[in-house]
Design a protein around this nucleic acid. Structure first.
Lengths: 347, 347
DNA sequence: GTCGAAAATGTAACGGTTTACATCACGAAT
DNA sequence: ATTCGTGATGTAAACCGTTACATTTTCGAC
């Protein structure tokens, strides 16, 4: 109401002595506008400090140039970097990014309702690591919402995934090569991890590597907690309390690994006693000498954004059969990398 | 174009046998709608899967229910937590948050233009730690843009600030109490920090504490780098290379402190040789025993969001003289807290 | 049964763009 | 001189809600 709206396109048109259509075309750099006209209109618009109201443009075109990023949190090490990559890319392409954390992945119902509410709010959605059910995905799809998922797959939407099986395999293999045969696991999913979730795939990679070396699975060596340092510390304590503790442990994130390391210290141990390998290549991993599997969260974010923009531009092309396995190539080929430090070398 | 728009309010009205005005009122829970009508309309809207197009509502009301959060980065330890707090609060109040990092605070011109472009895009702006010039602030203000600043002040807008002078003072005082008299400083601002920026205030607190103890300032003890572990490491190396290195160092962030700690290790030293105190209370500070001044970034984010919403609701109330010093009370009284760990206790 | 106030509902203007289609101007070709 | 084509510009109809104001209904009081 008292909200002071600035000059409208009509004001500019009047001032410039042309029609609103011409102003609209001139300002947006469309063809079929005389060069002189364009310059004059631009000058007048600048002078009047005119700025097109995006709400009106959105109403007219149906495009908002807004993308919603849905992540478990906004301040996790991985997610904040994912977001940074996605946001930068979106901005460079003329979009703005709405960050929307969904803390409670349990409440699928609520969450879905939430997403559906967004229908005309944004041009598209990037949903990260939330393992939406196929049913929910189908609903979103039939509502005409454009979605790209990251870290998990659905039938309906393109997905950008990191090869997390490989992450788990690589890490475990590294420990095996180091001569370890009793290898523990610290997962970040307290409950039974979904088969195709990030922790689920890493677990599968771990199991697969063990199997490939003919080592029997001992589930007592699989501990889990939350994806935090504290969660890692507790899990490691449980491992250390075993009658026959592992000599090497694959920890699903560096932050958890820091906690695990702390648990060692608390018992007067170091990683010459228990080797540890983490995931992420957290800035501080180098400082404490933690071996890790480096990921490229920024690049995955960028790739997701790019995929979504393509989906938006192509007005919804996506053929499940062909395209369902949409891998972040950058993340696959360049991103996943073993970084060996002191935490896994025998002294 | 081919963008399939769903049912409009008119469709619902027709179906329900009432006018669009009634539908609008019913769905938004406005008064003066018969209870029966409200229920019926709601039911029909649900059945039709009707969802009001926010762009139309925005055009009509001039309110977008969008807030833009401008921070130096989106993935820094402090900023990601600030964002988490702000976003949660905004969402709980029916707003969505657009995250917009501005990497290059140097380019004031560009940055300002950027901000002005947002005029009708969002209901308000939260600008964190970017030290906009008074001139730029005045321009924003006269453009009618609602802004709350955090981490710095302007004449024109309410600011949410943490008492960073106190942070510096507290940290330095703690070292003084520990018996140190030769106290170094590692700042996160490579160049001369602005007097009222976060690093500037912490520096002032450091200087103030030294002065209060009658200790002369030795600028060779003031080193600075970027706000990263690597920056901290390098700065610490410079300090250690001095003829008469400090016995205690105030480091402006925990991440930098981790780097500083690493520099000690590289020389075979520990913090029984050089005491270190950081800022933030990073999750990993506890793990390595780093003493720190705990901040409450989430709460500062929340407070900023709350202040902005008030500014929006009150339609722009803000009296510079009275209100200019708008302190995040939570952050002042509860947030700043000294957490003593092993890095500053003599062994 | 009437009157009047309050509640419920309807009408229509308005917000500011975009864009399909119509029109116009101008030069080239005939 | 006429016609045609092409580029430049204008006209007006969407787009879809919100809301001031008008109108109708309801209901209690007399």
């Amino acid at each position: 109401m008292s909200r002071n709206r600035g000059p409208s396109i009509e004001d500019v048109a009047r001032e410039a002595g042309v029609s609103v259509a011409t102003v609209s075309r001139a300002l947006r750099g469309l063809p079929n506008v005389a060069e002189g006209t364009r310059i004059r209109v631009q000058a007048i618009a600048d002078k009047m400090n005119y700025r097109a109201d995006p709400s009106a443009a959105r109403l007219a075109t149906g495009r908002t140039h807004l993308v919603q990023l849905v992540t478990p949190t906004v301040d996790g090490w991985y997610f904040s970097r994912f977001l940074a990559g996605a946001i930068d890319h979106l901005i460079s392409r003329g979009y703005e990014a709405i960050s929307h954390p969904v803390e409670n992945p349990e409440q699928r119902e609520l969450f879905l309702a939430e997403l559906l509410r967004l229908e005309k709010r944004v041009d598209g959605l990037i949903v990260v690591d939330l393992n939406i059910s196929e049913e929910a995905a189908a609903q979103l799809h039939s509502a005409g919402i454009r979605v790209v998922t990251a870290g998990f797959r659905t039938q309906k939407f393109p997905a950008v995934i990191v090869d997390d099986y490989r992450v788990g395999f690589m890490a475990t293999e590294h420990l095996l090569h180091g001569g370890h045969s009793r290898i523990g696991l610290i997962s970040g999913e307290p409950n039974h991890p979904l088969a195709f979730s990030v922790p689920g795939l890493r677990l599968a990679g771990y199991t697969g590597a063990l199997a490939a070396s003919g080592i029997p699975i001992d589930t007592s060596l699989e501990q889990s907690g939350f994806f935090t340092a504290e969660g890692g510390r507790r899990a490691m304590e449980r491992l250390l309390a075993l009658d026959d503790p592992p000599t090497g442990v694959f920890v699903m994130s560096d932050e958890m690994a820091f906690g695990a390391w702390r648990a060692l210290q608390d018992r007067g141990l170091s990683w010459s006693d228990v080797a540890i390998i983490g995931v992420d290549d957290h800035e501080l991993a180098a400082l404490v000498g933690l071996t890790t599997v480096r990921l490229a969260p920024r690049e995955v974010g960028t790739a997701s954004a790019e995929r979504l923009l393509r989906l938006i531009d192509d007005d919804g092309d996506f053929t499940p059969g062909v395209d369902a396995v949409d891998v972040a190539n950058a993340a696959r080929s360049e991103g996943i990398e073993l970084v060996v430090r002191s935490s896994t070398v025998r002294t």
